[in-house]
Design a protein around this nucleic acid. Structure first.
Length: 809
DNA sequence: ACACCTTACCTTTTT
DNA sequence: GGTAAGGTGT
């Protein structure tokens, strides 16, 4: 903290310098100011369109900037800050600017730096909701019952803690999994509810009706541990401001301007926190896009943005609708799709770029199953690559992460470099968490969770029973585990090996703590990992991932170097979930639609547009209409990531939870405007060599077929089908490059696609029936369970399949 | 303490 | 169908 403050003052001076070279002080008269403005100041405004400019210049009172995808949202935000500084309305330290992710915060810092010139360390209040929450809490910790060096628990610690409380309460862990309660806890905290505030009904719905009690116990335990969880970073900050008017008044005086990024993602506590702070200057500017709200499931309230004008009376609403990213076809498709949502403020994106003949429409293609889908997309990507597209400009955006594997498999065999974005984060890996636990226990002897994590890692012969003994003692005496250990090894409680191991462990930790200020923190870090035997543990591990883990540990030490001290490092790591190390190698990106928000690519593939997967069945079941709308927003996010090419895929069959399901194309396909969409004939929909049944028989693309037959006679269709079922030349090649290349055989649909609800395969089957399956061939029915049929296939063995997929043979 | 077996899960994820 | 976590047995 001390470190932070000194950094602040020096850079405040930097800022003053930067600002004054930016624009002459007011006293020098209008002419001088105008001149200065022409040189530097006006520059940043001149490059904006009228709406952006209005968003930048409307400094007084609440403002909501509805910024559609690709309309220059970040640019407005950063320019607005530059403008505040240039017009000397506030010092950098008087601006509160919040984002959701560290990445966004970093980007904002960089871009402000570019605008104003120079590094932007001088904005101490630019950061994520959580990091700013921490900042406030550290400063006033004692007002909410904490010490300012409190620890921040991550989800893993949180769950272990809950588990302990559940056990201590003698509650059946199976019936009330800690994980589930952690979810409830998060939900409450996101809504700003403290134990006393949760609705009676909900309180009773958990842990044998003891939900409220457990929540309260958990909070009490956190206070004892001098710890907070992620939810508390905001909830406690709100509590702090609510209960201490003087503190709030202080912040009111400080923050002349408040800016909020991605407002559509804010939850209730974040909203409460912002409202409290905005009561000061009223100069709050929120930027967001209701159409890109895709985090409802983790507490985001679209309502926050929908209600803005009511919440902040007199708010000015500015719409940014001029899109600088995508072609008019992509924009047209996305806008038409999202127009099907009811709960939205309404915006229409447009581009000035005239649609060009060359410009590709959004393509829709189908595949037999996910394997073929991956293969076709892979082929397509290689074609793009041959035409000179940089692989970094290509992305595959999936709804669910299990879809990724098929692509990875395919890309590994075909040698297409790819990168998966999203997976487990660096800090979440076991070795990193272990290493951090070592550092934590050195820094904070009272960190029981850290103690437990590493007391027997690597194995020291301190098993569960010993830890339990320590635990009981610690609880009885009201001391941390470290202290309990210290006291108990002095007695006869532990014998022989265990006693020795504990004594040694304790001595080690003490020794490291003594070194804390005697050596550089990076060296100490290394020393700890070596002396504890932790490094050796992985060196001796012969498993495939061990070398990678050692590499990660090295990376961890390396990254410590960027921090002044161990404290600074731990603070950072507990809040920052960045996986860094951006390999710069050219590669296709594979990620979920969620993690694609905010990114853009020249070419975007959107596989898996099938009912049940996208929109996801669970979103429909649990979210109803609003669930569907959120899925639709996700589709909108996907489409609007594309700059020039957008290719949507669906398959006729997909294996879900082990059994094959025939799938129906997503309803979202019907919601695309035909004028901007092209149905791509991949050949594959016909192209199964098992093709006894026409996959189109189950698809709304029947209507397409009908349309096509105006041009192509039914006879042609039959011929086509016959040709496809004939043995194919290239090995497994259902879609030769010629066949599938753009513009060839592609059919334009002019009429609206009409959903054809297909109630397929209602035929009933009985045990013993001889059946035929499109994928597995002939077999006998072994068991009938509703529409799920277990069949003994002649070739493929026993499989459980859906009846719509079977024909009587 | 470790190896093996059974069972439950299976949407999205930042801080 | 595949995985991960938890439980049981040696």
């Amino acid at each position: 903290m001390l470190l932070y403050r000194s950094a602040m003052t020096t850079s405040e001076n930097q800022w003053k310098n930067a600002v004054s070279s930016f624009q002459a002080p007011p006293s020098e008269g209008i002419a001088a100011r105008a001149m200065a403005a022409r040189q530097g100041g006006a520059d940043y405004l001149a490059r904006m369109n009228p709406e952006q400019r209005e968003a930048v210049e409307s400094l007084d009172g609440p403002v909501l900037v509805l910024a559609g995808a690709g309309t220059g949202k970040t640019r407005v935000l950063t320019t607005r800050i530059a403008h505040i500084l240039a017009t000397r309305r506030a010092f950098p330290s008087e601006i509160l600017a919040v984002t959701f992710t560290n990445k966004a915060a970093r980007e904002m810092k960089d871009r402000i730096g570019q605008l104003v010139g120079g590094a932007v360390e001088g904005m101490p209040w630019l950061g994520t909701f959580h990091s700013i929450g921490v900042r406030m809490l550290r400063k006033h910790a004692e007002l909410v019952g904490l010490k300012s060096n409190f620890t921040i628990l991550d989800t893993d610690d949180q769950i272990r803690l809950i588990k302990q409380l559940i056990q201590a309460d003698g509650i059946d862990e199976k019936r009330w999994p800690a994980r589930q309660f952690a979810g409830a806890l998060d939900g409450w905290k996101n809504k700003g509810l403290r134990p006393a505030d949760i609705p009676e009904g909900e309180a009773r719905a958990y842990v044998n009706g003891r939900g409220r009690q457990l929540y309260a116990d958990y909070q009490a335990r956190l206070k004892v541990l001098n710890a907070v969880d992620f939810g508390d970073l905001l909830l406690e900050a709100v509590t702090l401001l609510k209960q201490n008017p003087d503190v709030l008044a202080d912040y009111h005086r400080r923050f002349k301007f408040i800016l909020v990024d991605e407002y559509q993602d804010t939850n209730v506590v974040q909203y409460m926190w912002l409202r409290l702070l905005a009561q000061g200057s009223h100069n709050i500017c929120c930027v967001g896009d209701d159409d890109q709200s895709i985090y409802g499931w983790r507490g985001a309230e679209v309502d926050n943005i929908l209600r803005y004008e009511r919440d902040f009376p007199g708010a000015k609403v500015i719409r940014l609708e001029r899109n600088y990213r995508s072609t008019s076809h992509i924009l047209g498709a996305a806008s038409h799709l999202i127009a099907h949502n009811e709960a939205r403020l309404g915006k229409t994106l447009f581009t000035d770029l005239v649609p060009d003949e060359e410009e590709a429409k959004v393509q829709v293609a189908s595949a037999w199953d996910s394997e073929e889908e991956a293969r076709s997309i892979g082929d397509e990507i290689e074609r793009f690559q041959r035409r000179g597209t940089n692989l970094n400009e290509i992305a595959i955006l999936v709804r669910a992460s299990f879809q990724m594997r098929e692509f990875e498999d395919r890309f590994i065999t075909s040698g297409v470099p790819y990168r998966v974005i999203g997976g487990p984060r660096f800090y979440e890996r076991a070795e990193i968490r272990d290493a951090l636990a070592y550092f934590r226990i050195v820094m904070q002897p009272g960190d029981d969770l850290a103690f437990e994590r590493i007391v027997n890692t690597p194995r020291r012969g301190i098993g569960d029973t010993s830890v339990r003994t320590l635990h009981d003692y610690a609880r009885r005496e009201g001391v941390p585990l470290t202290e309990a250990t210290r006291q108990l090894v002095a007695t006869e409680e532990f014998k022989g090996k265990t006693r020795l191991a504990l004594t040694d462990f304790l001595a080690q930790v003490d020794r490291w703590r003594d070194q804390l200020h005697a050596m550089k923190h990076t060296e100490l870090g290394e020393l700890i990992l070596d002396e504890s035997g932790y490094t050796a543990m992985w060196q001796n591990d012969r498993s495939a991932e061990a070398p990678g883990r050692l590499e990660n540990l090295k990376e961890l030490i390396r990254s410590m170097d960027e921090f002044e001290s161990m404290e600074g490092f731990l603070e950072h790591i507990s809040l920052v979930m960045d996986r860094d190390s951006g390999e710069e190698q050219e590669a296709v990106s594979i990620m979920t639609l969620h993690s694609a928000k905010g990114l853009e690519f020249d070419t975007v593939f959107l596989p898996g547009w099938e009912e049940g997967l996208f929109p996801h069945q669970r979103a429909l079941d649990e979210g109803g209409r609003s669930g569907l709308e959120e899925e639709r927003r996700l589709a909108y996010v996907g489409l609007t990531r594309a700059k020039r090419h957008c290719l949507i895929w669906f398959t006729s069959n997909r294996r879900i939870h082990g059994s094959w399901q025939s799938s129906i194309p997503s309803r979202f396909l019907d919601e695309l405007p035909t004028a901007h969409v092209e149905i791509k004939e991949s050949g594959s929909a016909y192209g199964s060599s098992f093709g006894r049944s026409n996959p189109y028989g189950q698809s709304r693309f029947d209507s397409v077929e009908r349309f096509q037959s105006k041009y192509e006679t039914p006879g042609w269709q039959r011929a086509q089908k016959a040709a496809q079922s004939a043995p194919r030349s290239s090995g497994g090649g259902f879609a030769s490059p010629k066949q599938a290349s753009y513009g060839r055989g592609a059919k334009l649909i002019e009429g609206e696609l009409i959903a054809k609800s297909v109630v397929s395969g209602s035929a009933k089957f009985d045990k013993g029936d001889r059946v035929f399956h499109v994928k597995f061939g002939p077999g006998n029915v072994a068991l009938v369970d509703g529409n799920k049929i277990t069949v003994d296939f002649d070739k493929a063995g026993q499989k459980r399949v859906v009846d719509s997929f079977l024909e009587k043979a």
